[in-house]
Design a protein around this nucleic acid. Sequence first.
DNA 1: AAACCAAGTTTCAAATAATGGAACCAAAAT
DNA 2: ATTTTGGTTCCATTATTTGAAACTTGGTTT
Lengths: 272, 272
Amino acid sequence: MSEDRSKSDGTVGKALEILDLVASFGRPVRFSDVLERAEFPKATVYRFIQTLTSQGMLSYDPDRQTYALGIRLVRLAHSAWQQSSLAPIARPLIEQLAAEVGETVHLAQLDHAQVLYVDKIDPGRPIEMYSQAGKIGPAYCTGVGKAMMAYLETSHLAGVIEQQSFHVFTEFTLPDEAALRAELIDIRTNGYGFDREEHEPGIICVSLPILTARGRVLGALSVTSSTQRTNLAALEALVPRIRVAANAIAREAESWRFPDQSKIQTVDTAKE
Amino acid sequence: MSEDRSKSDGTVGKALEILDLVASFGRPVRFSDVLERAEFPKATVYRFIQTLTSQGMLSYDPDRQTYALGIRLVRLAHSAWQQSSLAPIARPLIEQLAAEVGETVHLAQLDHAQVLYVDKIDPGRPIEMYSQAGKIGPAYCTGVGKAMMAYLETSHLAGVIEQQSFHVFTEFTLPDEAALRAELIDIRTNGYGFDREEHEPGIICVSLPILTARGRVLGALSVTSSTQRTNLAALEALVPRIRVAANAIAREAESWRFPDQSKIQTVDTAKE
DNA sequence: AAACCAAGTTTCAAATAATGGAACCAAAAT
DNA sequence: ATTTTGGTTCCATTATTTGAAACTTGGTTT
């Protein structure tokens, strides 16, 4: 199910596989824990762990003799979040959106075949960030996931759908590819989609894709609430307002031209 | 100055060097941008970028033909922050501390030879997370940096000091190793240290290390303010309260025993 | 339109680094 | 004192990385 990464990315791919493996434990691990789950021989796993530790991608606790993900990752993520994600651009826009509609707003992007939440604003309560940004979720049963899938090009979409688990979370969870594909056509027709308690009972949302002028999917925006507080029709009424935000984010993301500091003449004598 | 990483970490080290390089631009980059600054030949840089992109560590924008740090990093960092840093443990404790003292509290750890801020609570304003966590700063002229250095073992300390730039930020910046070493002895004697406008004019702080029972440095805590609002003596009065928090964090970090889910019998027939 | 150029991509033999079985070591358990 | 478990090192074999050079592509200039 996830044996595609590292398939032909040589040593680097394998090292990152080990990194993911450590991450998957969700807690500090001993060498033997990793060895057990890894599909490489002892010495190989050992060397990878050494290397990753020396590189700061893993950290070693000498007291407990355990490895955990290293803080170099936190530093890199700081840059990643700033430069690669929509979050820093979108932050002021979704803050205002959340304040106006009075509901939780999610900003998500597609990672591999999963939804990755890059920001969340919950009006009222102070922002808890790390607990949300970086979180991943299934694509086939979340509003943002479906909104993004609806606008993928056919070939890419096929790959993404193939990797959906179609685990049944609630009675409303879309059960299979056929149901999902039908839903995606609907979304494309309307320009927005819903989560009808497909992932968590009582939780509903409207979602819109964030698209470039050329139609490439950048991410998705959703407004989430519960069945107690509101209903789908009320959420649907927010679509125009959300669309304004989504468009604004797309426009800003696209127009973000960077100071052209790369145009410095490169003299060829730069070899010294 | 930073040619130590990847020195003998083979291919993986080199790939991560490229990753850092991309991060260092702070904005999406073209292939040639990277090539220019990298010390590897064209084909090598090219393959690394391909690999990293295919691995999701970099993301490629086909419209602009640029690479940026990938969102897989955000996902990994989410785990890293949770499992490796002190932040999730410390969060409630420093929130309360910030509320009580009414000043900004920083939580930092040492990464390589730099200070890495893993959390920040500013009473009054809502918490901005990724924009702060992950930020790095110099060790020799920040309160948290000096507090941590003061408690490193001699050999480790030497390596860290060697990498300090001793750039002069203000008239109070410690100018050289001798001044720093003297200051570190002071800090060790008192159990806490100050930032006397050494990094930014008008900004002062008290800082305490977070130490394990065995005396290993886990991180540091600081309460920051400005010369307009307060003075060093007033900050010093907060030390006992801060020490409570620092000790609590250390104790919790140490006693955090993880559910013993690794003790599942590993039958050796697991080969199929 | 032809010639040119810059940026990006592919090739392939040589150089280098990764591999992994096995031996080794240390500390804890018996 | 002996065995077991968990971690570390060795080193000949093997596979991968390397990088100069050739090539392709898309955009400019003449």
